[in-house]
Computed example of a mutant assay.
Amino acid sequence: MTLPGFPTAIKASADDSTSSPFWFGQNQTYFQHYSALTLPTSNSIPESVQSKWSNASEINQEKTQNTFAYKSLTYDSTTKKFTMTLEYNSPALKGEGRKSYFDLAFSQSMSSKTSDVHLLTSSIKGAAPDTTLEAKNGVFSSGFDAGQQLGGLYTLKMTIDPVKILSSDEMTGMYSSDTDTTGYHPIFQAARTVGYNDFGPQFNDALLAQLKINSKGTISSLDNLTPDQKSGYNNQIDGENTNKDFVNDLNKITNDATDADKKAACSYADKMDRFYASSTV
């Protein structure tokens, strides 16, 4: 599928049958022509073959120097949305007629909460400074003509709805470089995975802190609760931690406070109606 607004070399692809492609959860470099979905069989070019190419020294760089990392979770009070930032760093190498691709996948609970994924580049020739990764069945994909330069630093930013990260959650980024000109520079797909220990605690801490601020802000704005009621709800908020189901818990506390505020307003309005009705008799 060609993406509108980008050169024809930019493609998006994802698996029609499963939300977990073969490279998900891997920390491995595959030596093969690009395919986001197909197991490395018929399209593979064995490392033993590529090791005889003129720039075979780059093979070890691709196996050891590709890194993928979680950077931050931030909140925009204007849009009321969270942004997660990731970085994928690949050795910057030269080549001829290169095409680069980037694929990104999440564990199921994260994938359902993630949208608007952007691949941002600062020093990579041929790449648009802001490329949207198109989603299909939970895989976010795009590509571009890399010309004579491949690799470098890629920053990924995406919108993510509040979700608690669990021990089973992980994210995999796969950078690929391909060309029809063989015998010179490696053709590869480098999949790298960020697991719970690499990002889960930091993500949950940042999310919990912001959600507490948001919940307390909502309760502070309610006009019909007594100070004691507000204090009670705030105490419940303070009692939440990352060992609990804090996303749902904080949402329930906020909703309970809002409902109580509405009931108090209705009760006051009903009393005033009865007061005015009795006054006119």
Rank of each mutant, 00 (worst) to 15 (best):
Y268L: 11
S267H: 06
P186K: 02
S111M: 00
S54M: 03
Q26W: 03
Q148K: 05
I213T: 13
K125F: 00
E240S: 08
S109I: 02
D198G: 14
K216P: 08
H185Y: 14
Q65R: 10
K94D: 09
Q149D: 02
I237F: 11
E62P: 02
M1I: 09
Q210K: 15
K11N: 10
K157R: 15
S141G: 11
D256L: 12
H33S: 14
S44V: 10
D161F: 04
A9V: 06
R98S: 04
L250E: 05
D205Q: 15
L207P: 05
S57G: 09
Q65A: 10
S17F: 06
Y175D: 02
L120T: 09
V194L: 05
P46E: 10
T226D: 03
A277Q: 11
Y175Q: 01
P40W: 12
L39P: 05
A127I: 02
T159C: 04
K71F: 05
F140S: 03
N214K: 14
G195Q: 01
F144W: 14
S215P: 07
L119V: 06
M174H: 02
S141A: 14
A14S: 15
S115D: 15
D116L: 07
F106H: 03
Y184L: 11
G217H: 13
Y154N: 12
D161H: 01
S115M: 13
T18G: 09
L153Q: 09
T254M: 10
N255A: 15
N197W: 04
D130F: 05
F144L: 01
N137I: 07
A269T: 14
K11R: 10
K63A: 06
S111D: 04
F24C: 05
K63S: 07
D270I: 11
M110I: 09
A209L: 12
M1C: 11
Y75K: 12
T8Y: 11
N234Y: 08
D116I: 07
Q108A: 12
K230A: 08
Q149Y: 04
G5N: 10
D270L: 15
S215R: 02
W23N: 04
D270H: 13
K113S: 14
A209I: 10
L166I: 00
P129S: 00
D180R: 15
L39E: 12
S54Y: 00
N43G: 07
A127S: 12
V163F: 01
P162V: 01
G143H: 03
T41R: 14
L119N: 04
A9L: 06
A36Q: 02
I219H: 02
I45S: 08
S44H: 07
I237C: 06
P201F: 04
T41H: 12
P7I: 09
K11I: 01
P7A: 07
L120Q: 14
D178Q: 10
T38S: 14
K136Q: 07
H118P: 00
V117C: 10
T155A: 13
E170D: 08
N235Y: 02
N255L: 15
L156W: 06
E134I: 15
I10W: 13
L104A: 05
P21I: 09
F140A: 03
T193K: 03
D245R: 12
W23G: 03
N224M: 01
A264P: 04
L208R: 00
A69T: 06
K81V: 04
D130C: 01
D103T: 10
T2Q: 14
